[in-house]
Design a protein around this nucleic acid. Structure first.
Lengths: 240, 240
DNA sequence: CAGTGGTCTAGACCACCAT
DNA sequence: TGGTGGTCTAGACCACTGA
C-alpha cells in the first residue's frame, strides 16, 4: 500500500470517527510530516485526495478546514458501483438478472455502445429492487474480450467486484450522460411504476480500463421520483 | 501565471489544434522537461490536469494517450457557469431577469439555501431562452455580504464573471443535487413547455468560495426534453 | 512577524511495458 | 534492457493569514 494512501485513510478515519468536526482545522502539513515521518509532498498528496473527495478545504495561510458532508445520499456521482453504494448506505436491495446472453455488436449497437462491429459482448438486463419496489432497470454490454465468463450469480452480486478482484482489471474512468426519456414497453413490463409516470431517467455510461480500452456500456433507468444525483465539484481542479 | 498552468494550456492547445489526435501519445515527461526547461514535477502537474479534464489517459510504462473528447455537449457537469457554456458551445441564447430583490433569510429559506436566518441575500429569478424557447428557469440566492450590488444587467450577462473579475472573489467548489420534480405554477407561467409535460428537472447547487464560505444557492429548472448532463469521472481520483 | 499552504527543483528508486 | 510513468525525498522560495 502506498504511503499517501495509508495516510489518506488514517486522516479520513479520524474525520469519520469525529476526532475533527466540521469547522475544525486539521494539523498543519508540517505537523503531519513529523507525525507520519514522511516528506511534505506525501502529506500533500493525501490532503489533496481528501480535498477532491470533499472532506476538507485547504485555505492558504490558514490550514485544512474540515467540511460538512451530508450523509444518507445516493450518489450516482463519480464512478461507484451499485453494490458499493448499497453497502455504503445500507439500503435493503435485491438485484434480479432477467436476461443474459452473448451477442455480436452490429452497426446499430456500435453507435450506441461505442464498441466495434463484430465484437462479442455479454448483454445483461437487471432489475434493482429497493423496499420491495423494482425501480431501476439496468442494461449492460460487457466485452467478452475482457470478461470471458459472466453468470447470473455475478450479475446479482457485483460486476465491479468480480472485474477488479477476480479478473484483476483496473477500472479507470467513465463518460456519463443523464437525460429524461419517454417510458418504453420494457420498463412498463419489468418495473413497478406509478400510474401517472410517462418519463424515466436514463444514465448512459461508457466505462474504460486503465489502458483506456472501453469494456462496458450501461444504460441505467431510474423511476423519476426515486432518482437523485449528488455531485461534489471543484471549479479549478486544484487537485495538483 | 504559474508554470504548470502555462504548460497545461500549451499542451491543451496543441491537442485542440489537432497536433495530437486521439490514439496518439504525447511526448514523454522527460521530453517535456527538456522542451519547457522545468522540473519533471511541474510537467506532471500539467499532465495530471489534462488527465482530470479528460484530455489524456496516462498509461504506466507507455505514455500519455490522447483520448477522444465528444464535442457539442452541454455539460452542466463540473462547475461552469451558463454564460461560459454558452460561449464554449456557441449557442444563441437570451437571459431575462424577471425578479430581483433583496430579501432576509427566514427559517424556511435557511433549510433550503443553507444560509443563516437573518442574513441579507439577493433573490433573482431568470429565464434562459435558447432557439426562441424559454426552457430554463433559474432561481438564485446570493449573499449580500459578498455581493453587495447586483443589477439586472449583471444577471443578464454573467454573475460568475462579475464575481471573479470585478469583485475578485475566488469561486472554489459546489454541492449539487439533480432530481425530477412536478411542474409548478411559476414554471408554467414563465417557460415554454410542451403540452404533455408534467415534470421538470431541478438542479440545486450550493456554491462556496475559496475560504469555504457559501455565497450562492441556485435552483435551476430545465425542461425535461432539453436536459442533458454530461460527466467525466475517474474511479480512483488519480489526480495526485 | 511566525506559521500556513502553494510552487518548483533535482535527484532517487520502483513498477510497468516493449523489444 | 531501456524508456515510460509512479512514488518519495529534502530543500528552497513565495504568497497568504493573523496577531
Amino acid at each position: 500500500m502506498k504511503a499517501y494512501e495509508v495516510i489518506y485513510q488514517s486522516i479520513e478515519n479520524s474525520i469519520l470517527r469525529g476526532e475533527f468536526l466540521p469547522g475544525d482545522y486539521l494539523p498543519s502539513e508540517n505537523q503531519y510530516v513529523k507525525l507520519f515521518k514522511v516528506s511534505r509532498d506525501t502529506i500533500r498528496k493525501a490532503l489533496n485526495l481528501l480535498m477532491t473527495n470533499g472532506y476538507i478545504q485547504k485555505i492558504h495561510g490558514k490550514g485544512s478546514l474540515v467540511l460538512k458532508r451530508e450523509q444518507l445520499r445516493f450518489p450516482i456521482s463519480g464512478l461507484t458501483s451499485y453494490k458499493e453504494l448499497q453497502n455504503a448506505y445500507g439500503y435493503q436491495s435485491i438485484t434480479n438478472v432477467i436476461f443474459l446472453e452473448k451477442i455480436i455488436i452490429d452497426k446499430e449497437l456500435e453507435s450506441l455502445t461505442g464498441f466495434s462491429v463484430g465484437e462479442q459482448a455479454w448483454k445483461m438486463i437487471r432489475t434493482r429492487e429497493i423496499d420491495k419496489q423494482k425501480i431501476i432497470l439496468d442494461t449492460d454490454y460487457l466485452l467478452c474480450r475482457f470478461i470471458p465468463t459472466l453468470t447470473k450469480e455475478i450479475g446479482e452480486d457485483s460486476i465491479y467486484k468480480y472485474i477488479e478482484k477476480d479478473l484483476n482489471l483496473q477500472i479507470s474512468f467513465a463518460e456519463k450522460e443523464i437525460r429524461v426519456v419517454k417510458l418504453n414497453q420494457e420498463e412498463k413490463q419489468y418495473l413497478d411504476l406509478n400510474p401517472q409516470d410517462t418519463n424515466i431517467v436514463s444514465i448512459q455510461s461508457r466505462v474504460f480500463l486503465a489502458n483506456a480500452e472501453q469494456f462496458q456500456y450501461t444504460d441505467s433507468r431510474h423511476r423519476v421520483d426515486k432518482f437523485l444525483f449528488y455531485d461534489f465539484a471543484r471549479r479549478n481542479p486544484s487537485t495538483i
